[in-house]
Design a protein around this nucleic acid. Structure first.
Lengths: 245, 245
DNA sequence: CTTGACCCTGCCCCTGGGGCAGGGCTGCAC
DNA sequence: GTGCAGCCCTGCCCCAGGGGCAGGGTCAAG
């Protein structure tokens, strides 16, 4: 009959771990020898190895306790479940590793070079510093959280700004910042933007919106918070686009 | 400027997690708005994503804090280190998964059928119940912990027992249980066993001993604990084999 | 002006052990 | 036998990485 230290050293865990498993009822308390030491048999080694296999797979100890006294059928289903979760975790870690490596290689590329150029162009076209900064934050967000779709969205946006007529609309949006929310120019601008959006994308969803991520909403809420006129503008545009669908 | 809930929901963590990161100094506390709410910018999103990437890779928060203010060079080395550990963990999980699947398939095979037959043969040959039980535990241990080498060791042992002359030696070992440790028969038996071992394996290591695992030592210590005569026998055999090398 | 959804701080709780104190056993050497 | 190292025992507090709740303030929409 072996001692707790041998059992533990043997399966590759600490003595404490074995005692914890006793306390939590995973491993039955064995008989004691005359001096009160726990004495284990070969079956306990086998049981402990099973427990460790589950534990290393990430199964909570409380669940392992249930499994140790579970029937064939339940055990079979549980093993399938555990296996699936383990596969997920492994995939997750591999994804993390990929992100880590990206972080290791392209460290200081918060934004692709094209975006910087675009932001400088905005300034030259007469956009306010406030607007440019909002745009900068928007693209940092989009590139950080949706690296896959960001480039496409950016190309679309960039193309829009290069058309003078559309650029005018954005410029007017920018400069509407200080207007009174009731100013008729706000309503007129909203109408024009709705028209332009519909003629560009039809009644389909524009690209930003199907990045279902909440990024556009997030940025929009931030824009709205900055000015009452902008808030009204946003609400009018939404209503206009909503009615067209 | 976005709120803590947006930041969190956004990167896919809880609000609490973000606050914990502030408390532990991973993410700098941002400015507050008039009502005391934390307000974040796009840079914070980027920083939080970095933090989560490390955290998901298993880096402790205290270490992440250091990394957030580390220089290029240190960061590069740390990333390499983290990547390596991550690879290890992934491999470990894959190994666990393999063991899990083994557990799922061949569940009730505590011992291969051949071992049971062998144990029954021992009884017929006149080994005591005590000896048979020790052997049973030994093989459970070996098969549980060294599934790769166990079959080979078992074949070797089995072959030894099938030779009548060697079997006699084992029988005498078994029956030496109750002898006085000073009995001359103990010394004589030890001599014979040393001779037989040397003639079977030469001066090389016998197979049990190079399963460097400690299993043999473990079992031997258990055997020794059972009887003073056995203890003496073991010590004599060790001395004899040691001298021959 | 209410209502629901946020936000704030402070506090205790959980898991899976690690580590230490303060005491008892065992086995080996001398 | 006597020492002494190395086990073992129980009981206790500690850690990370958050979860959850209390008790209170804030914001936006209807």
């Amino acid at each position: 009959m072996i001692t707790i230290g041998q059992l533990a050293g043997y399966v590759g865990v600490s003595v404490k771990t074995v005692r914890v498993y006793h306390a939590k009822g995973l491993l039955p308390e064995p008989d004691r020898d005359v001096s009160g030491y726990r004495r284990y048999g070969a079956d306990d080694v086998v049981a402990l190895i099973r427990i460790r296999t589950f534990a290393e797979a990430g199964v909570p100890l409380a669940r392992i306790r249930e499994l140790m006294t579970a029937g064939e059928e339940e055990l079979r289903r549980a093993l399938l479940d555990i296996d699936g979760r383990l596969t997920d975790r492994i995939r997750g870690l591999q994804a993390t590793q990929a992100r880590l490596r990206e972080l290791a290689s392209g460290e200081p590329t918060l934004l692709p070079a094209g975006v910087h150029a675009h932001l400088e162009a905005l300034e030259r076209w007469g956009f306010t510093a406030r607007w440019v900064e909002l745009q900068r934050d928007l693209w940092i967000l989009v590139f950080a959280t949706h690296p896959d779709r960001a480039a496409e969205l950016f190309r679309d946006q960039s193309a829009m700004l290069s058309e003078p007529a559309l650029r005018q609309l954005f410029l007017r949006y920018d400069h509407a910042y200080g207007l009174d929310p009731g100013d008729p120019r706000v309503e007129e601008l909203a109408r024009r933007i709705v028209d332009a959006t519909l003629s560009r994308y039809g009644a389909d969803t524009p690209p930003e919106a199907d990045a279902a991520s909440g990024v556009p909403a997030l940025v929009q809420s931030r824009i709205n918070a900055a000015s009452p006129a902008w808030r009204r503008l946003d609400s009018l545009i939404r209503a206009g686009l909503g009615a067209a669908r």
